[in-house]
Simulated assay, not measured.
Amino acid sequence: MTKYFTLIACFFFAIQYSFAQNDADTIHYRKIYYFAGTGLALPIGKTKEVLSPKLFAGSMGLDISLKNSKYYLYPALYMFNFDYDQKIEDNKYNHLIENGNASIYMLSLAGGTRKQMKRLNTYVYGGPSFGLVNEPRAQKLETTVKIDYDRSFAIGAKVGVGADYKFKSFFLGGELGYMRHFTKVQGRPFHAMTLLFGLKSDITRLGEKVVEIIAPSSN
């Protein structure tokens, strides 16, 4: 399934790149947008032996137009919660956890390209990601079960395709993505499809004010 998604993303990127040589993008020119999304993260492959989907996944990101506004930077924070079944014993704890709760926080530093069709925009992005994986652990002390969390650093990649539509003062959009970790969870590779819907709003003026505060003009 991940191979099919990668092929689709590459095909979509090729189409976007060819379009990027033509019409001007009037919506994103010199703009910074804030995107907040919510939805699902769906583990795939052997990841499903450890993790299963749980409502809700979330994301917060910035859409920063480059000099050619058909290209953009997309730094984003993803927050995933999963049901968790521990498969490998941890010598520090005397119990395995079943039906626990695990969380993953990943910062993606992606870039992409988009195509404007009046008020409708399609886009594709990709880039590295890194963050924290929190896995629950259980220790029984007499009549009390103490729950701790084992935290580990993860490195991976995030790619996605999506579309949004501009209303008067905001965009409504959705995206389908794929995240892969190069580190493992309970000895299993981490693969997940992400399906997110949300709103995108213009924060260009706020960004300009921040720049003025940090680096005031000499006039």
Rank of each mutant, 00 (worst) to 15 (best):
M1D: 10
K3E: 13
K3P: 00
F5S: 04
F11Q: 01
Y17F: 06
Y17L: 15
D23G: 09
D25V: 10
D25F: 11
F35G: 00
G37T: 06
G37E: 11
T38K: 07
L40E: 05
L40Y: 13
I44N: 01
G45P: 09
E49F: 08
L51I: 02
S52V: 03
S52R: 15
L55W: 13
F56R: 01
M60H: 15
G61V: 08
G61A: 08
D63W: 15
K67H: 07
Y72P: 02
Y74A: 10
F80T: 05
N81D: 05
Y84L: 05
I88P: 00
E89W: 09
E89C: 01
D90G: 01
K92T: 03
Y93L: 08
N94Q: 09
L96P: 00
L96Y: 05
I97P: 10
N99Y: 11
G100T: 13
A102C: 08
A102M: 12
I104E: 15
Y105R: 10
G111W: 04
G112Q: 03
R114T: 00
K115L: 02
K118V: 04
K118C: 01
N121K: 12
T122C: 03
S129V: 02
F130T: 05
G131E: 07
N134T: 07
R137T: 07
E142D: 15
D150Q: 13
F153L: 14
G160E: 08
D164Y: 03
Y165S: 03
S169C: 04
G174Q: 10
L176H: 05
G177K: 00
K184R: 13
K184E: 14
G187Y: 12
R188H: 02
R188M: 13
H191L: 03
T194S: 13
L195P: 06
L195F: 15
L196G: 02
F197P: 02
F197G: 10
F197A: 13
K200I: 06
S201V: 11
I203A: 06
I203E: 07
I203Q: 11
I203P: 09
T204S: 15
R205A: 07
R205P: 00
G207E: 01
V211P: 00
E212C: 10
E212R: 14
